[in-house]
Every structure is written in structure tokens, then in C-alpha cells.
């Protein structure tokens, strides 16, 4: 019989071990291969676009900007029509790491929070996922810029 008034029957550490054994891990190899393939495809598409825009006479910097704009547009479109998350489910880091991930992280909440209004819904919530990337991205860039400015500018 179980003694009455027991508090916890197992040590938390012991339970954590049980949880680890019972929980299947993510399929790492499959995820990596998918990410490699899809991420590679997106980058190839980017290169193709770059060649295309250069072919039509865009200077290098401008062509690169147009590539970003095109990928962002495509991501926002695919997010809006509900396709992007279905690709990303399999692609993982493959869609997350390129600029597509960033674009999706802003487009998705914009769609989701429309119901709370254009200002307090869409506009405020648009940055819920991308916000930290912007904050720490800008901070890192500023820091790097200062180090470069003070120590390495010839």
C-alpha cells in the first residue's frame, strides 16, 4: 500500500531521466538534409535572380538588393496564402536562416493579428518574433562598427 500523505514519490532528477528516455528526439539527420537541400535551393534561386538582374544591367549592389526584395516578396506571398509554413515544417533551418525566415516572421504575425486591428494588432504584433533579431542584430552591428572604427580603420 502507498503511505498516505506522501509528497513526491520520485526525485525530480530521476523523473527527468525517465522523460528523456520516453521522449523521442528530433530526426536530426533528416532535418539537416532537408535544411541543406531547401536552404541550398533558396540560395541557388537567389544566385539565379542575381545573374538575371545583373544581366539586365543592374550594378552589383543594386542587383543584390533586388534579390532580397524578390525573396522577401515571395515569402510574404507564400505566407499570406498559407503555403510557407507547410514548406518550413520540413525545411526547418533551410527556410529559417535565409532572409525568407525573417520575412516570414514578420508576415505571419501581421496576418494573425489583423483581428486586433491595423494599429494595435498588425503593427504592434508584427515585431513579436522579428523584434529580438532587429534589436540584437543592430546592437551587434553597432558594436562591430565601433570596434572597426577605433581599431582597424587605416
Amino acid at each position: 500500500m502507498i503511505p498516505k500523505g506522501e509528497v513526491l514519490r520520485m526525485e525530480k532528477k530521476e523523473y527527468a531521466k525517465r522523460v528523456e528516455n520516453a521522449s523521442p528526439g528530433s530526426p536530426l539527420l533528416k532535418n539537416c538534409l532537408n535544411a541543406f537541400a531547401v536552404g541550398g535551393l533558396i540560395c541557388t534561386l537567389g544566385e539565379g535572380l542575381f545573374t538575371l538582374y545583373s544581366h539586365f544591367g543592374a550594378p552589383e549592389k543594386e542587383a543584390a538588393a533586388w534579390v532580397c526584395i524578390t525573396l522577401i516578396f515571395l515569402t510574404a506571398l507564400l505566407t499570406g496564402i498559407g503555403v510557407f509554413d507547410k514548406i518550413a515544417k520540413h525545411a526547418g533551418a533551410g527556410t529559417m536562416v535565409p532572409i525568407t525566415g525573417f520575412a516570414n516572421s514578420m508576415a505571419a504575425p501581421s496576418v494573425e493579428y489583423q483581428t486586433e486591428g491595423r494599429v494595435l494588432g498588425t503593427a504592434v504584433k508584427m515585431f513579436t518574433i522579428a523584434g529580438p533579431v532587429i534589436v540584437y542584430g543592430c546592437s551587434a552591428a553597432s558594436l562591430y562598427g565601433m570596434i572597426y572604427y577605433f581599431f582597424f580603420r587605416g
Binding site: A88, M96, V111
Partner: peptide, 17 residues
């Protein structure tokens, strides 16, 4: 999903658990 996780169209992966 909206309250506890991510927007529906967010392209994330879920773990097997």
C-alpha cells in the same frame, strides 16, 4: 496557438513530443 505559441503561418518546426 495564438495564445501559447506562434502565429499560424509562422514557419517553425515542432518536436516529436
Amino acid at each position: 496557438e495564438k495564445q501559447f505559441r506562434y502565429p499560424l503561418e509562422y514557419g517553425g518546426q515542432r518536436t516529436p513530443t
